[in-house]
Simulated scan of single mutants.
Amino acid sequence: MAESPTAEQLESVHDTTVQTSANSSLDPPTEAAGESVPLHWTEILSLVIALVGLVGNSIVLWLLGFRTGRSPFSVYILNLAAADALFLGSYFVLYMWGMVGDLNLLVLKLLLFCILHMSYCVGLSLLTVISTERCLSVLFPLWYRCHRPKHTSAAVCAFLWALQGLFWGVLGALYFLKEDTFKDLYFVLYLVQFSWFVLLTCVLGVSCLTLVLRVQCSSQCRRPPRLYFLVLLTVLLYLLCGLPLGVIEAVWFFSSSSLMSYELSSLLACVNSCANPFIYFFLGSQWCRRGREPLRVVLQRALGEEQVGGSGEGNTSHPNTLHELS
């Protein structure tokens, strides 16, 4: 069992993550240890990427929310786009506020901080659910098609949002209670969140490996559906770009050491949230066709419930339609 941190360490956690200076609204843990942060170009690049990602995820939200029908898988993508948009939006506001404004309004600053981390955790949870469901549909196709409850996607998404919202809401509320009684509770909450992070990351890795093996086996018979590549690319992108932010925050909280610059890990996290819409539209495009297709058609093709065939899977909806309501 990890040793409970001292009151000074816990106070340092909140001072460096919530009560940050006006020069940088999300000062990295390394700055709290007295290290300088020379990577100013990463902040500018992060803001540009955040703006581009906000536009891309807003387009996905509009198309999936109002322009197309919904399938069980598209409900997950809709919520993932919402989580990415919240992450990029709160990140952009915090940094811009720190650059041009005065970060003295603690309540609003704490709210943005909690939204930033809540959306990050929701995104990880959704990716884990998406990859796990794809594995179930591959390993147990008949059971998945016949016994999966109709509203599973909506229920799971609502549960994940409520769970993370409750956690970060409680953590934010406890910040204003300065009694020493709650110091141990802070540590317990962070330990629970860290355990959840490790569990989801392990499940994500196993399910991704399963899908890779499935795609490898399927490619010997016929071309695997775009949906498999979409899941694999989004998971791989998270493992490369999104995972470092959670890792360095966990390492710093328990050991007060830093593996890499906080700005650099934040930049990678912005790249992860920004790139997902481009993956959807890239996989849904048909480059052999002449002329421009509506983005709605491209997105529907990328999210189509295609099946590889065999193993009792049978035929499902046409790849260009999303007719199942979740």
Rank of each mutant, 00 (worst) to 15 (best):
Y186P: 00
S195P: 00
R223P: 03
Y280R: 00
F73H: 05
F187T: 10
F253W: 11
S285V: 01
L211D: 03
S24A: 07
M118L: 15
A162E: 07
W143A: 10
A32H: 12
Y120K: 02
L80K: 12
C241T: 10
P244C: 13
L268A: 08
W168T: 02
Y228S: 07
N276E: 04
A50P: 00
L124Y: 04
F229E: 05
L245N: 01
Q164L: 10
W97L: 12
V100P: 00
E313H: 02
L116H: 06
A302D: 04
G56W: 04
V122W: 02
L264R: 00
E249A: 11
I248P: 00
H151R: 13
P141R: 08
S36R: 06
L295Q: 05
N57T: 05
N315Q: 14
L45H: 03
L142S: 14
F182N: 08
L232Q: 06
A155C: 14
R292F: 12
F281S: 00
F92I: 14
L163Y: 12
V271F: 15
L142F: 12
T210Y: 01
A269W: 09
N104E: 06
S317Y: 02
G284T: 03
S153V: 08
A22W: 04
G169E: 07
A162G: 04
L174I: 14
W287G: 00
W287C: 02
L64F: 14
S317R: 07
Y76P: 01
T30S: 11
L26T: 05
L94H: 02
L61P: 03
V100R: 05
I279G: 02
N320L: 14
L105P: 01
L160Y: 01
G205S: 08
R226Y: 09
L177F: 06
L86I: 15
W97G: 11
T17V: 08
L232Y: 06
L51I: 15
L204E: 02
Y91H: 13
Q9H: 05
L189P: 10
R67T: 05
M96V: 06
F113L: 00
V100A: 15
L299A: 04
Q164G: 10
L236Q: 07
R290K: 15
R148H: 10
S119W: 06
Y186D: 10
A269D: 01
E179N: 03
A154P: 01
V308K: 01
K178I: 10
V215I: 09
F113A: 01
L295H: 04
V129A: 06
C241N: 08
F92L: 15
M118Y: 00
F254T: 15
W168L: 11
F66C: 13
L303H: 02
L39V: 11
Q164C: 13
F253H: 12
A81F: 10
S25E: 02
